[in-house]
Structures are given as structure tokens and as C-alpha cells.
């Protein structure tokens, strides 16, 4: 069956995704500028679990009315392959990037699941001068720092989640591919409970499993590299010169599916669609990932 959106062909294939653990943290600060600094810092070098151990991103910005301390804030999602790795990464990142960020405060963004230490681990920085406050069965730590105090909730929680939902935008040139990808990422940003962890939400170096080099677990996805056409078996249609991938992590199958649908529709809806050749998805034959997002089903 051929499916087309705005003339762009949607391939009958599926994205292969994996079970992950996710935690949400809310960060607030004195103003939007310092929220942004804190978010950039804590989500830095968190694009892929392959080398970063965690995938993190801004879920959405929060208005002052939505945050516990009525200051501007943001919800950040962290994903990792194991609970212990996630706990370790959150502890280190909150300690090094949010505790250090002027005027910041950190709160739990999920109330169910297994606890992940926030202030519980960082309170010792207060060297005995930290103050514990229990309000509504939630414990907060007030850790004295040089701009006043760092308020940090005792724990957040981690839940089962999904990482690696994806689709590929195959285009004639980089301008059309980028425009489509930017539009897709903006649309996915509106889906709560999902993030796109790569730079600007887009990845150009999609990978396949394994490599000719034994020490590497992943290497370039040669079937989609336009400069390898003629050297390896290619999946690229004639005239395709650029492929960009959107990778989506989400807190549930429904959210990932919804994000893929919004993303694909947005990618194919604009003047740039004339430069797109197809939308496809990355998978490993269905043997590695537990979750399969079939593009045609997602778009139903």
C-alpha cells in the first residue's frame, strides 16, 4: 500500500525502539534567562546513551503558575537504559549543573515509580548547615550557597519509558531536509512526555549496529549515506542527497506514537515538502527493540 502526505511517500516500515527508564525534573530560576542556562547545562552531552549514558532534553517550559515556587521554570526529561545509571546521571548532573546555576531550584516532576535521589544525595554539600523542610509529605532541602540557598526536593521518581522512536527525512538537498526537520521537531515539542535529545532535535549520523572495527558497537548507517551510493547497498531513492533522522524518547508508547505522527505530518506540510522524497524509519530487523512503531499505523 502506498501512503503519501502532500506528495511525500511514507515507506511501509517501522521504527524500532527500546525500553528505557525515565525521570522528570523541574527546574526553576529567578527569570527565564537563568532557567534557560540551567536547562542547557544539565541537558548538555546527553544525546545518546551509547556514549553519554543518558539522553536528556527540555520537555517544555513552565510558566510561574505551573511551578512549585511560582517562578519561571522548565520540565526536563532524562532517559537511560538502566535505573541505576539514570540515578547516577541525575545525581551528577543536578549536582554539577543545577546546584551550580545561580538562583536555581529543583523539584520532582513525577510522583510515581521508584525514587531517584535529588536533594537526598546533594544535601551533604551543605556541610551540616542544610535545612530540611517537609511540606505535604514531600521533603525539601535548603542548601546554603553563595547566592543564598539552593532549594531541592529530596527525590524524584523514575518510570518505565521508551527510547528510540524515530523517522528519517529523505530529501533532495539539505535546505529542504533542514526545513522539514525543524518543523517536525517544533511539532514534537508540543507533545508532553517526549523529547528529541539530539542537537536541535535532529541527528545526521544515524547508526547501524556493529562495525568492521571490533571495539565499536555502532557505526554509520551506510545504507542511508548519499556519499556511499555505489559502494554499498543503498536504501536511498534516486535523487536523494540528504537524510536527517528525528529520534524521539517518550514516557509511554502512546506518547512516542503521537510524537511521530505530529512530527511526520509537520515535516510533510510546508513548501519544503516539494524537496522531500520519502519518510522512512530506522530499525534493526525487529530483533533488538521491543517496541515497533509502524509508520502507516502511527499515521492512521
Amino acid at each position: 500500500m502506498t501512503l503519501k502526505i502532500n506528495g511525500v511517500s511514507i515507506q511501509e516500515t517501522f521504527a524500532e525502539a527500546f525500553p528505557m527508564q525515565a525521570a522528570r525534573v523541574i527546574v526553576t530560576a529567578h527569570n527565564r534567562k537563568w532557567v534557560s542556562h540551567a536547562v542547557q547545562s544539565v541537558t548538555g552531552f546527553a544525546t545518546s546513551v551509547i556514549a553519554c549514558k543518558v539522553e536528556a532534553g527540555l520537555e517544555r517550559e513552565l510558566t510561574a503558575d505551573e511551578t512549585p515556587d511560582h517562578r519561571p521554570g522548565a520540565a526536563i526529561l532524562f532517559f537511560s537504559m538502566s535505573g541505576s545509571q539514570l540515578e547516577e546521571q541525575i545525581r551528577d548532573r543536578v549536582g554539577q549543573c543545577l546546584l551550580t546555576s545561580p538562583t536555581s531550584a529543583v523539584y520532582s516532576g513525577i510522583d510515581e515509580g521508584k525514587p531517584v535521589a535529588l536533594g537526598k544525595a546533594l544535601r551533604y554539600f551543605g556541610d551540616g548547615f542544610q535545612i530540611s523542610k517537609k511540606l505535604d509529605n514531600r521533603r525539601y532541602w535548603r542548601i546554603p550557597v553563595m547566592d543564598g540557598e539552593f532549594v531541592c526536593e529530596d527525590v524524584t521518581h523514575r518510570i518505565d519509558a521508551i527510547g528510540g522512536g524515530n523517522f528519517l527525512i529523505v530529501a533532495r538537498d539539505i535546505d529542504h531536509a533542514l526545513a522539514a526537520a525543524e518543523s517536525a521537531v517544533a511539532a514534537i515539542h508540543d507533545v508532553a512526555g517526549t523529547i528529541t535529545p539530539f542537537p536541535g532535535g535532529v541527528v545526521r549520523s544515524g547508526s547501524k549496529v556493529g562495525s568492521k572495527y571490533r571495539q565499536l558497537v555502532a557505526s554509520t548507517n551506510d545504507a542511508y549515506c548519499p556519499t556511499l551510493r555505489g559502494l554499498v547497498a543503498t536504501n536511498l531513492p534516486r535523487g536523494a542527497n540528504t537524510v536527517l533522522e528525528i529520534v524521539i524518547d517518550g514516557i509511554s508508547e502512546e506518547r512516542v506514537s503521537q510524537a511521530m505522527r505530529h512530527g511526520i505530518n509537520a515535516a510533510c506540510s510546508g513548501e519544503w515538502a516539494a524537496g522531500l522524497m520519502e519518510i522512512t524509519a530506522s530499525n534493526f530487523g525487529g530483533k533488538l527493540g521491543k517496541f515497533h512503531f509502524h509508520l502507516h499505523e502511527v499515521l492512521e
Binding site: D69, K133, G148, E149, V151
Partner: peptide, 13 residues
């Protein structure tokens, strides 16, 4: 004198 995020938190609770 200083701003305290804790006071905003307490107020909202």
C-alpha cells in the same frame, strides 16, 4: 534582606 525560593514554595503549599 534577600529573596528566598523557599518562601514562595511555602506560600504556594
Amino acid at each position: 534582606t534577600r529573596h528566598l525560593a523557599f518562601f514562595s514554595l511555602l506560600k504556594s503549599v
